[in-house]
Nucleic acid binder design. Structure first.
Lengths: 220, 220, 220, 220
DNA sequence: AATGAATGAGCCTTCATTCAT
DNA sequence: GATGAATGAAGGCTCATTCAT
């Protein structure tokens, strides 16, 4: 930028492309793949109707790009370093729960469509889910499983560890996934920062209490 | 039918209606509301293309009927009697977890579309969700909250009870909701009866361990 | 129509269908399959844009129907009876040439699109051509070959007969196929009835002169 | 090229132009004007998508250039010298028939798209046909008419001469124009060199026999 | 001079829906 | 009461073309 850019200037190609992905993320998150229309995506991105075909060949090509973007975002929020920086596995668990929960909680906000996209993938998986699980979800799952294995004192592949890992993940994901129901059975609930702290604390305590009990039993 | 009905129509009015609801449940569960087509529903139900508009006025009217049917099915599997028949709240918890989990596990099977419909409602709620929560989910939620309140020894409206209730529900629902991801991070997993017993047992143990710890703390 | 029609009235179903085929014939003849638009066809037929999909499933389905209609028309103008009714093979030849030529000559007129459709098939054959040749062109080709075999005094499968048959057909078809060029190299030409008589007479004389010469050589 | 052209572009201006015309000839011959796409033409020519508009202003401009190229090729195969070099009009007729027939026969081969383009022009003439007839077809038509006039012993503008000329042309062109039908009614036919000799000989003999008969009648 | 990004018109098709029967 | 014919809106996509660079 200062002396000599060997690379050609990015024109507007990448800019339009990025705007399309962002807009598509929003629309796909809101309506799902099928119900989303290319027209609305292009309108939101301020791009021409033919831009999708030009940049991504297909509506499906655009969706693939959206999923890839989701993977990149997920990889940036890597749990591994979060776990490694923590002094004890218990603290790591709390950090992980807290971090994931906040990402889940902000899913409904504008621009945070990644989690809502996954909700549609759960209801009606597409071929892109394989890659998402392989590159984004799988690694994080392994990290959490390692932390829990440490707490319980059992090998990571032990059924108790696996099931407990799912128990923890379930409690976190629940606040994004079941949001429409929660807001109806608990109308007063507001997802303030303090409330999120409380929920993260609860999930951690709930899980730690269980895991410690399992740990005692496993060492008997 | 008794004396002189000249030509009993081959398809009863209500029978066609019921077949439409059943077929629509399948198709809506598979593709979601928008992506589902009236044509496919009518074809599966063996009905005329205009039958949906005739019986339900709208595609949305049919969807409402499907949701209503879902509510009826859910009400039949009432958790209240399950809880009342149990001798201790701990046993009730296990019964509830076991019962719900099995309904979740069989969601993928043909004919059990009610849970999958809810998955779509989570991703993209419709106006019908209000009634579903009010009539089907809410009551069951209250029952479970009561059981947990008993175990923890706190009033049902206490935050610990509410959060714990969601922790339990989350663990159960997770096995239906996150199925596509679970089958990818845990490919060997098969949902046999024994495995379902193990999972139900795990969720109950995991939750009871936590709840008992909470109980001790709350009585201090 | 007078006493008891057991068949249900044809509604407008067949009427709309027929209008579509007729309009499609015109448009396909004018522009070819690809360049023809469903919109123009429906507009000419006074039908809705979705009518093609409803009646023929596809643009290609409509084209198939058009080709089938062409076959039916061609079969009605069967050359066989024309040949059998003639007293001598020479007269039969003239009858056939005259009949075919007039059909070719009127190809440009509104409603006579069958020949022009074949022109497009020659330039860019589709899968439907097989059936057209099998059912419409092939039989007539055999009839003409039989007549020529009689005149030449050789078996129908003899090369001289086959080549001569093509020579005759070529001369007739030419006046439809090369019309755009002919009208430019012979601007004064007008296809009046008298002129058609003259051309038919010419083709017959031209061909008979050649065939008689061949006949003399083959009997030497 | 002589002293110091700094960067001779990898693709010469005129070279790209020529490659575009050649590629366009192929594609137009295969699909017709409308159905041919600029994209495919540019891809085959190894040129940019905007090259057609840059070099020819229009898709139609490119088509005009293709037709012009067709004219140039046709003029190179001038029949005039072929006729003048022959000792008798009968030999000239055979030379012309043989020469034209071979060009027709090789029309299907790659690179010989000129004849196939004309087939599309016959089915759906464009404005460019005028020039093609004026510059390429017309002169050759006159030459052939002259030869036939000599054989029949009548002036070139006599109807018998004109009609006979069309009879000869028709027989030759037929083998290119009706190829799709011929290959279906005569499946065993293979267009070997010997077969082409036979066909050219047949057309010449067929026509000469007729013309000689006409000659006798006209001198009576 | 020559290109790649971007455009808007228009294509075929499918959709939920309505209407006459 | 219940159906098949017909509708118009809108869908994704492809097209020839243009505009900055």
């Amino acid at each position: 930028m200062s002396t000599a850019l060997p690379l050609p200037p990015p024109h507007d190609h990448d800019a339009t492309r990025a705007r399309l992905v962002e807009a598509a993320g929003e629309v796909f998150a809101e309506h799902g793949f099928q119900a989303a229309t290319v027209r609305e995506i292009c309108a939101r991105a301020g791009a021409n109707i033919a831009a999708v075909n030009y940049h991504f060949r297909d509506k499906m090509g655009l969706y693939d790009a959206v999923l890839l973007e989701s993977i990149c975002v997920a990889k940036m929020a890597d749990l591994r370093q979060l776990a490694e920086q923590s002094q004890t596995p218990e603290i790591a668990l709390h950090q992980i729960v807290n971090g994931m929960l906040r990402r889940m909680a902000h899913a409904a906000e504008r621009g945070n469509w990644h989690v809502r996209i996954m909700a549609h993938e759960m209801a009606h998986p597409t071929s892109g889910l394989d890659r998402v699980v392989e590159l984004a979800i799988g690694p994080n799952y392994s990290v959490l499983r390692g932390v829990i294995a440490q707490i319980v004192g059992l090998p990571p592949h032990h059924d108790v560890v696996r099931l407990s890992t799912h128990s923890v993940i379930a409690q976190v994901v629940h606040w994004a996934h079941a949001r429409p129901v929660i807001s109806r059975v608990w109308p007063d609930l507001e997802m303030t920062d303090a409330r999120l702290d409380q929920i993260a604390r609860h999930i951690t305590d709930f899980s730690l209490a269980a895991l410690r009990t399992f740990a005692q039993e496993s060492t008997k």
